[in-house]
Every structure is written in C-alpha cells, then in structure tokens.
Design a protein around this nucleic acid. Structure first.
Length: 426
RNA sequence: GGAGACGUAUCGAAGUGGUCAUAACGGGGCUGACUCGAAAUCAGUUAGGGAGCAAUCCCCCGCGGGUUCGAAUCCCGCCGUCUCCGCCA
C-alpha cells in the first residue's frame, strides 16, 4: 500500500509504475482515487464542522442545566436535533468514501525498486548469479520419491488413507534428515545474529486479512471450524502479526528474527497439489527469517537475507542460483524480490527453494508498523525470506548427494544433527 | 467448560450522564536549576490518528454497535486479562 499523499502529489510516477508492471487496466484508478479522496476529505470537513457545532451546543446545554435553566436548554437543543439527519447522512457518506479509497489504494502497487528488471511474467525473470557447479552424475538420478522409497523414507499410501492427497509420512533416516535440516538451519541463523522464535501456528481472521489479500486467503488458508482461527501458511504471518499496530523505538531496530513453524496450505487453484512427490503439499515445515528495520537499511538487509539462504544451501553441497523477479512477476506489495533456486541434476534445471522479499513500507503502512525516533514517527520497512523449507529442499538434497548405489552422502555440516552419520543407505 | 472481577497515557490509578482527555493523584522518563559531581529538592516537560497554509477543529477511555442534545460513565455483542473450581501435556 502506498501513501495517498504521495499518489496525490505524484500521480504520474504512480502511473508510470503501474505501466512497468503491465497492469494498464489499473491506470484509471489513479485519477479516480484522487477524485474520491478529495470528495472524502470535503465530506469529512463538513461533518467535522457539524460535530464541532454539536459539541459546542451540548456544552452550553450542560452549563444551562447546571444553572437550572431548563427551558433555555431545551430551546437550543432544537438546533442539534435539526442538524442530526444531515450529520448522519454525511457520516454514512464519509464511511462509504473512505472505504472506497482504501479499497482502491490496496490495489495500487508499491513503487518498485529502480533496479527491478522490466518484464511481463516469470519467464522474464533474470538470473543474477550461480553458486557452485551444476553437476550431473553419469548415472541416472531417480525421481526424488523413488530415492526416498528406496531408503524406506516415505509412505504416501498410509498418508492418503489418513489425511488424503498432499500429505506424507516421512520415515526413518529421511524423517531424521528433515529434522536435522531444520535444526541446522535454526542454528545457522542464530549464529548470524538472528533471534530464534516459535510463533503461534494459528492466527485470527483480523491478522489474516491484514497480512494477505482475499484471493490469497481463499486459496491458501485452512480455517478452524467454529473458531475465529486459521492455520498459518507460513510463520511470516504470525511473525509480522506480532508487529501489527506497534510503535517501535528506533533503538529497538532492526528486529531480526528467525522462526520455525509448520505451514499449511490448501494450494487451491493455479498449481494444485503435485500428484507424486513433496514439491507442493498441504503441510510442510519451514525455517523463516523476517526483518523489521529503518527505511534506509532495508536495501542492505535484503542482500544479507538472500545471501543467508545461498550460504546455507552451499554448506550442504547444493548448487544454487539467484533469480531476480521482473516487474510483472512482482507481487503488488513488494519493492523487490529474489528467488533462490536449487539445482536439480535429474531435471537438469534449477527450481525454487526460497523467496526473499523487500516490502519497503507497504506492509508496514497497511499494518501500522511504525518507528519512533528523534525525527518523529515513520513507517518501518519489512522484509522476509525463506531460510529453508525441508520437504522441498530434500528434493535438491537427495538428488545432489546421491551415490550410484542409492545411498546418500551427509554433508559435514549436517552430520552432528544426524548422529555423526556420513551416509544413509539401506 | 463453570463462577467471579477487571480493561483509562510509559506504569499504578481516580473519574459511574455535562463545566474531565494531555485526562486528578502517585511513580517512571526527559530537560533545566541547585551541586565539584551525584543523591535529595524545586521548576518545566512527557499518548496516538485525521483535516487545514495557519488559527483551529474532528476522532480516540479494549473493539464494534445502540440510547441521548451530550457517553469513559447506561444498554447489547465481541475480544482480552486475572482469581477460584473442573479438566488436561
């Protein structure tokens, strides 16, 4: 959400930004919202005047009653009664207009960073850098679930019976590996100065509507029956929720948090649940990082955040690359976003394992996350990034560390979390 | 789940239909005076949102409604906290 004052003063910049994102259908909204906003302020002014008048007269009535001049009091009461209908009408109009303005403002995209490449959709995202040699072994790499099944590490059949498609039982060493990665990632981030955090796994509807759009909510969130609670789709939801409607003293920033949580997603629509495998499922676990900082520091944090993910994957001997989201693929709330992709020796291509976003002040404005400092109060900047989401990373892990005999190497960094094992096999 | 109490600024807390919202009273913080410095003392200062060039005005007593000329105060719904009982990892 952008500042309406900015939009008022720089309508052309806002329009230019909309064009860059190939959302030309939103162009008329800019002038429309300027008009509605002007109307809204005018109506508000009128209503304010009436309220001021009412307050004044009410005070007079109070004074008169006190002196026992009941007759006089009753006489001037008339004046308020007379304007009551008009005031009610104005108040209705006031609410109507301001909700219309907010509604439109929610759809106006955040001003993107000048460095964002211009492009229509994800096909035009730009590779930034590769880390590690994409390696293809001279034997055939099986599908990841076959690797797991071969190690007795996954049971889809039982999961389907118990919970349906999109769920899984991880078993034995694979389950242990999954937990090992989470624990390792947690310590990795703690070592880098982040504060570890286990947040609520359910959140109220007012937090849900604060942190996501209605469309997102419908396609992602599971609702608890009979309660005002939703299962989180990512710990970012509860982590950012922690800051809703807060004023944070400058010296408490930056807040750098790393959180663990299971994540629940309906995955309704667009992609759907993957038939075979753990790439896209209803339930997974994730280590996440979020930063709330001063505006001038968000660029710096953005680079630090995605670098953490790259370093983590590299420490597990997985080749990765970074991919900059182009303007058209960038969500409306984001200033900049960068995907970290891991190498798949089987598919001989990279696939998404994490996503790093700088939301600038857009999320903060919407959720009223403010900073108080010597220069007054202003909106914070917020960022988030995946450290690692193990089911998905297991795909990359297993494919890149697979031996020809079906066993899997455990990188040095993970061994302490795997009871010292150097390899897992049958 | 049952019973009761409560929700007002940075904290404690007063206010129970009008002249009480920067909001009594007390504590804390900040600034200044006194001091070689500190403590003590004294003085000042210390919430948010919105409209306006400004003067100024509007909103804000957990949240949302209602009654009233006027609501922190009365009524309804919701949320939260605490205490006791029950139940449970």
């Amino acid at each position: 959400m952008i500042d309406i004052k900015f939009l008022r003063e720089n309508p052309d910049a806002v329009k230019e930004n909309i064009k860059k994102k190939f959302q030309d259908s939103k162009l008329p909204l800019v002038d429309e919202v300027i008009k509605l906003d002007a109307e809204s302020r005018a109506v508000k002014q009128q209503a304010d005047d009436l309220r001021a008048n009412r307050n004044k007269i009410s005070k007079q009535i109070g004074a008169l009653m006190h002196q026992g001049k009941k007759e006089e009091a009753m006489a001037i009461r008339e004046q308020v009664t007379k304007q009551a209908d008009l005031l009610e009408e104005l108040e209705q109009k006031e609410a109507e207009l301001s909700s219309k303005v907010t509604e439109i403002m929610m759809t106006i995209p955040q001003i993107i960073d000048p460095s964002v490449p211009i492009g229509k959709d994800d096909s035009e995202n730009v590779e930034i850098e590769r880390y590690g040699e994409p390696f293809v072994p001279d034997f055939e790499v099986p599908y990841h679930t076959d690797i797991m099944e071969n190690l007795n590490g996954i049971d889809f059949d039982s999961a389907r019976k118990v919970a349906g498609n999109g769920f899984y039982y991880l078993m034995g060493d694979i389950a242990r590996l999954h937990s090992a990665v989470i624990s390792y990632a947690r310590d990795f981030m703690i070592d880098r100065g982040f504060t570890y955090c286990v947040p609520p796994f359910m959140i109220r509807s007012n937090v849900v509507t604060g942190v996501m759009s209605f469309a997102e909510m419908d396609s992602m969130m599971y609702k608890i029956e009979g309660e005002d609670l939703y299962l989180i789709g990512t710990s970012e939801h509860s982590m950012i929720g922690k800051f809703i409607d807060t004023i944070n003293p400058e010296d408490t920033l930056p807040q750098t948090l790393t959180s663990y949580s299971p994540c629940f997603r309906k995955e309704k629509g667009a992609h759907g649940i993957e038939e075979r495998g753990v790439y896209r499922i209803h339930q997974f676990e994730k280590q996440e990082m979020i930063v709330v900082c001063k505006p001038e520091e968000s660029k710096m944090w953005f680079d630090k955040l995605w670098q953490n993910t790259v370093d983590l994957f590299r420490s597990m001997d997985i080749p990765v690359r970074t991919l900059e989201c182009c303007s058209g693929d960038l969500a409306d709330l984001k200033v900049r976003s960068l995907d970290v992709e891991a190498w798949s020796p089987r598919q001989k291509k990279y696939f998404e394992v994490g996503s790093c976003s700088n939301l600038g002040d857009a999320q903060a404005r919407r959720l009223k996350i403010r900073v108080s400092g010597k220069g007054g109060k202003y909106f914070a900047h917020t960022l988030n990034n995946t450290v690692v989401a193990p089911p998905r990373m297991l795909i990359a892990f297993l494919e890149n560390n697979l031996n020809e005999d079906g066993s899997v190497r455990i990188p040095v960094a993970l061994r302490p979390y795997m009871g010292g094992k150097e390899v897992i096999g049958k």
